[in-house]
Structure formats: C-alpha cells, structure tokens
Design a protein around this nucleic acid. Structure first.
Lengths: 323, 323
DNA sequence: TTGTACGCGTTATCAA
DNA sequence: TTGATAACGCGTACAA
C-alpha cells in the first residue's frame, strides 16, 4: 500500500487538505507547517497518485511521442534529445513504436495532453481532439496542426557558400538523389540552387540509399568524374561516414586533399575519425523547439505556427581552405 | 467533455451501476438491457476513463519497457515485436529511452504494473516493489528478478554442427572477440567448444566491433589465413551483411565458394541479397517469452524462473553442402 | 491559517 | 436482475 496525503496528515497532525496545499506549494499555508509537512512526506516516501490527480485535473502532463519508423536510426538521437528536453519541463514523455493509428488510440486511452508525431514525408495525419505537433512532414494542403521542420534547402546553400568562401569551386554532392523522399529532394535541390547562384556547375553522385555502405560505395564513382572535386558535401551522417572511410582507403586525405562537410548537426560528428564540419539544425535545438511547440499547443488557445528552423554550420577539421 | 457511464445511464434509463456491469460483461445483468446499454455506449462514443479505473483497481494494465541504449539498433526489431506481442494481451506497453534510474521513476509515477529492462550485460538492476523482468543480462550473483535470455553458446555449437553435417571442416568465426561484452564472449566460446567437440581447429577473425563495416573489413584478413575456410559463421546480422558484401566484391560466391551462416534469427535475414541461413532464437519467440514472463510475474505470486531460450536454425540459400 | 465536504469516473458491495 | 452507495486519492470552494 502506498502512502497517501491522509497518512501524511495523520503523521503531521494536520488535516489532509492542508497537506494537499503544502505539497502544491500553496501560499494559503504557513511556512512552518509547510516545511514540516514536506519533511514528513519525504520521510514517508510519498509519491502522488497520478490517476487521482488526473481524475481531478483532467490533465496528465504527459506527452506521447509516436515513432513508427523505429528502424530509421537517424531519429534515435532526436528522440533521446527530446526526452532530455522534457526533463526540464513538468511534462513527461512516453514513446510508442506502433503505427500512427494504433499509437494514437493507446495515447488517447492514457489521455496524454499532447502528441508528437514523426511521420513519413508527405503523409497527413488525421487530427482529433488531442493537440498534435508533427516533425518533418511536408505541408500538403493545410494540415490543422503545426509542423516543425528544418530548412534543408537553406542548409545546403549555406554549405556551398562556406566551401566557396574557402576557395573551393569543384564542389560535389553525395546523397540520395533519385527518390520520392521529399526530405532528400530538398537537400539536393538546395545544393543545386546554391551552386547555380555562384555560377558553379553542380556534380551529384547518387548513393541510392541512406546507409553507411551507400556513401562508401558512391565514392567508387569518384575516379570516373571528368573533373575531380576539391570538396564534397555528404547528405547525412551515415553517408558522410561511409565517404570518409572510402576516401581514407584510397589515401585521399581529409581535409588536405578533399574537404568534406556533412549534413546533420549531431554530437557524433565531433568524434569521427576526422572531426567533421557539419551543417544543419543542431539536434538539441530541434528537440527543444519541438518540445516547446507541443507545450505551447497544449497550454495556449492561440493557434500554433508551423516552424522552419534555420541551420547552423559547425566548423571542424574535415574542411580547409583550398591551397 | 467526454461521455461517462452516467451519461449513458441517463440515455438508457438505467442506473449507472447497471451500465458499469453491462460494460464489464457481468452476468448480473439481463442480456436485453446489456445489449441496449452497449448500443447506446457505442453511439455516444464512450471511452472508459483509465484514471478512474486505475484509482479503483490499483492496476494500470500497462507495462513499461526501458531501453536506454537506443543507439544499438539490433534491439529495434525486438522492441517492435514485443510491442506487437502485447497487442494480443490486455496490457499496453510504453517505452522509455531514459537511463534506467530515471525511466524507473517515470514508470513508477505512471504506476505501471510491470517493467521490462534491456540492460548492458553484467549490470544488476536494483529492484523495488514493482515487478521487473530483464532481457539479456548476465546473472551475476542472484538477481531477485527473472532474466530472459537466448542460449548463445548453444546456438554457435549448433551452427558448427550444421556446417559439419554439410561436409565442411574449415569453419571460421567472424565476430567481436576481444571484448568484455559477455554476450559476444558466449558466442565465440560456443563456437570454439563446438569446434573442439568435432576435433576441428577453430579459426577466429576479430571484427573489433559490431557494425556492418566491422564485418566488411574483417574479410580483409581472409587472404592471409593459412588455410582458406569453406564456411564462415557471422557473429550478428550487421557483421554478416558486411561479410557478404566483402565476399561479393572479391568475386567469392555464396554459397558456391563459401557457405555463410549468421547469428540472429530475424526476418531481415530472408531479404538479404543472398537469403541468409541463420541461427538464433526467433525474435518473435523471444518477444513472446519476454511478454509472457512479465505478465506471469505481475499476475502470479509464484516466483518466476529465469529462462534460457533455445536457438532455431533456419536454412536458406547462403549455405550449401561442400562439393 | 486550517479544516470540512464534495466531486472527478469507475468498481464493488449490499440492499431492494 | 437492478439500483443506491461507499470507496479509491486528490484538489478546492467554502466554512471555521
């Protein structure tokens, strides 16, 4: 049997409503008694009963995160960061790896206050009464919920400009190009626009996938290019890791022979064999924005805005000025 | 505002206690009224309030799964399968990716009925009042909770025997050998014992890691072996995928030139470039056993037993009899 | 400043 | 077979 506020009341010789007030830090109770009650509660190992609270408040202070594509590991870092970001709030987060519909049912059962959804690009989620925020979904038509996403195109343009400023003119993009995945398309298009703006001719190497091995094997095509690039932009962490390895095996030094910059701004970039210069919305920022967005949506009546976050370039040792 | 049993009672002209009975399919209510009530409830879109139920029952019918090492993707398949396995029960599952201690706190707050923990090998989890089942943790001393695990050593012996029966005598093991990870050690030791039993001399190739690339690069050492293996046992899915690719790039055909069998019994093995013969506890079985174990622990007073599950060999096209 | 009493939505016990 | 009522643990208006 768990200890309740009544038990505490008995122990502290006060009524249980006073205990309730004290525990909720109400100004309606004298500081002295408050302290005494808090102390007793602590000693007895009191834990509030969420169910009872919820029954009264009609609030759970829980947000559900729906992550149906658990096998796409890229998002794991983001999930971890979102989870951390919630620690600073009064909300807790629970996770479901079920398909969206099933997960929504489960979360409704739990009466979560809000939901975050990671969905495939272009996919619209039917929204019902529970506040919902989506991450990385293309805004087709008018979704009724806010969408948080990174500005992938802008990131690519910025990467091109950065390399340009270092003196590079032969800049290749290695990523998944021939795909229906709008996220990937935004990246390759951003790269191309960036190149055109600077009057450079784009060189794309298609990885035909998003895994390490795809970046690794794409470099096989390097030799057959008519002009050798002095800098490469990798489309994602995994791809860039594969690229880096492939270059090293060919004794092409990074950054002395080729500069390499990667999309995705995550801590792992720091600890690669060659610490990687990268571009993208820092994953902590992304997490924080997503968390703030759901909370805002839950607590405010004003409609929440969709949000496109701007990328940040972090310079490390994989890029250098052209000699 | 959600519809409650009282609303239904009013609508159906019965008392709300009758509604409660009807909804719980109690035999204490006439079939006719039961049907009527069910129909009304359905029409009104009734959803039971979990919090209220929980307040009375002291049960949430929720199990929490703690998965702190979210970045080790191997477990993703298992998580998905466990989630599916729960669908057939009256329990729901929620997930936390926080460190064990924090996750336990969160789950206690939710008053989950039980927990499943994926922990690092050799790590003992302090258990408190709430039923707990661990997966894949070495039983050091006497943990107070049951541990479900696969018999990795046995799996390796079985793999060796299988290849032996196909006529192979030069059987190499490619996996992470020089490590403190007891899971990996059990595998390599199982292999060695299996070889010794058949009076064959073991040949180990250390991958120094568990990723795709580790299997891929380990094959670099193949040429320098004094005797070429006719069969290889890969230590995990990722490793074997790397091995397969490396072999193909060297124009070594699987299974014509070398037979390849992999540890890990997961559906993905089926869809590899060469459908992979594999050994291990089928992930669906593992999931089912884990789910049954928690539920048993929750619902029965008898102490639950730890469980070592036996592997199953699935023959596909990556292995063949020695010509 | 503290205590009393009620209600949240449900189950369970007992009386009708 | 049905209905009234207490209880679960907590928050809160209202009374003391």
């Amino acid at each position: 049997m768990n200890v309740t506020i009544k038990d505490i009341a008995k122990e502290a010789n006060v009524s249980y409503s006073t205990v309730s007030k004290a525990l909720n830090n109400s100004p309606l109770v004298k500081e002295g008694t408050k302290q005494k009650i808090l102390k007793v509660a602590n000693q007895m190992g009191y834990r509030p009963n969420l169910a009872a609270k919820q029954l009264v408040n009609k609030k759970t202070e829980v947000v559900g995160l729906i992550w149906p594509t658990i096998d796409r590991i890229v998002l794991a870092t983001l999930v971890t960061n979102i989870s951390k970001a919630f620690e600073a709030t009064r909300y807790s987060m629970i996770l479901s790896v079920d398909p969206i519909d099933i997960a929504k049912e489960t979360f409704k059962k739990f009466q979560v206050d809000g939901m975050i959804v990671f969905a495939e690009s272009g996919h619209i989620i039917p929204e019902d009464d529970i506040p919902l925020v989506a991450y990385g979904v293309e805004k087709k038509g008018n979704a009724s919920y806010p969408i948080i996403d990174a500005n992938h195109g802008q990131a690519m343009k910025q990467a091109v400009q950065y390399l340009y400023d270092l003196g590079h003119r032969q800049i290749a993009y290695v990523g998944h190009i021939d795909t229906a995945d709008t996220l990937q398309l935004e990246k390759s298009e951003g790269y191309q626009k960036g190149m055109e703006t600077l009057e450079l001719s784009p060189v794309c190497m298609d990885t035909n996938g998003l895994d390490w091995v795809d970046g690794y094997t794409a470099i096989d095509g390097l030799a057959s290019l008519s002009t050798q690039p002095t800098a490469i932009i990798g489309g994602s962490y995994d791809i860039s890791a594969g690229i880096l390895r492939a270059l090293q095996e060919r004794n092409i030094r990074v950054p002395e022979d080729i500069s390499l910059i990667s999309y995705d701004n995550i801590p792992k970039m720091e600890t690669m064999e060659v610490p990687m210069t990268c571009i993208g919305v820092p994953v902590e920022v992304l997490a924080e924005e997503i968390v703030q967005a759901v909370i805002h949506r839950i607590e405010s009546d004003q409609p929440s805005q969709s949000l496109i976050l701007q990328p940040l370039l972090v310079e490390r040792q994989s890029t250098a000025a052209l000699k």
